[in-house]
Design a protein around this nucleic acid. Structure first.
Lengths: 185, 185
DNA sequence: CGAATCTTATAACACTTGTTATTTTACTGA
DNA sequence: TCAGTAAAATAACAAGTGTTATAAGATTCG
């Protein structure tokens, strides 16, 4: 009755997401996605109403990817704040373009950092509650300071102004955490 | 002997710089600069070899602008680190597009943060020396931590994830400084 | 004034973008 | 087998980019 579908929505999204990872979100154009998928631009506009829709899908996939990344990242620090920082900074270093899309440039329909962080199993709220249980005086203040610090290091790694190893980063975060915790209240 | 020059290099650069401030660096295109300058694109390519040269000039002007901004910013904190942070964060908030160009996206020929900060009168080296004289154990370690913190707050203000007032920021930076100083060595 | 000459405007080229109209292709039910 | 139908390819449009060739404009010297 009809021709068989060869280029699926999944294929296109996977290609677009891979391109974002490797070349950056700005390079995800209709023709480039088509070329990388080995087809014309037509299949894109069959499954997606327009490019905005595809971009939105890429953004969502990136957000989910980060959540997985964070959930699976090994907990090597002494506190959940440090663990969060380690995963976040590693993500910025290993997935520059995804990090830019999610946390720097604000994607198509930007979610706040908190929304993004709460998508995973071991989410921020959970981590904070753990800290509260561990007897921290003002965990949200502590979290804010640590978060600012963590975000700063991650953003600096994008511009090449941060080049500490994982071990050094762990030490730095532990020290920062101690500093903030000691002066907390 | 010849027609009088009406569109000068200064005019074009000023326009392009103003556009960067208001609309962002990406909007500085040949036709848009021309339109804003009330002329055709021709005068641009008379005084500049190509757009890259104009973009480079805009970047330099932005760098100089930041140096002035930093130099003139009132010193309201107790330490040079805090003062640097106040100016830096205020710059990010008041000059989003310039901040992006200089410190986030890495402009045409990106300078490192240190290069940019050392262009002003009250520069970073100077500030650090002041701290050393004030009897700080490891001023460069302190500077690194404060800088990461400061940069984090500034970058968060770009994405709307930081919305403290100047007074609150001052308090936050003082607290962070105390925390880092207390645990320094 | 008139001619030389530098400056500006107009128009065009070549390229890229998103998007769409049209044509071709391939599969499936009768 | 073959007609119908959905998918894909081709080609085009309109808008945008940097850049350049050409034409028009204005000013100053002779």
């Amino acid at each position: 009755m009809a021709r068989k579908e060869t280029i699926t929505m999944q294929m296109l999204l996977d290609t677009a997401f891979a391109m974002t990872r490797e070349e950056g979100f700005a390079n995800v154009t209709a023709r480039k996605v088509a070329a990388k998928s080995g087809c014309s631009t037509q299949p894109i506009f069959r499954v997606y109403k327009n490019m905005d829709e595809l971009w939105q899908a890429v953004y969502e996939k990136a957000a989910a990817f980060f959540c997985d990344y964070y959930s699976l990242y090994p907990r090597m620090g002494k506190s959940p704040f440090v663990n969060l920082g380690m995963a976040y900074i590693a993500f910025a270093r290993e997935e520059k373009h995804l990090f830019e899309l999610l946390f720097v440039n604000g994607g198509p329909r930007k979610k706040s950092m908190y929304e993004l962080l709460n998508g995973a199993e071991g989410n921020v709220v959970h981590e904070i509650n753990m800290a509260k249980a561990a007897g921290c005086a003002d965990p949200s203040d502590l979290f804010m300071k640590m978060w600012i610090f963590i975000h700063g290091a991650a953003c600096m790694s994008l511009t090449g102004d941060y080049d500490l190893s994982d071990v050094q980063t762990l030490e730095l975060l532990e020290l920062a955490y101690q500093a903030f915790a000691l002066t907390n209240q």
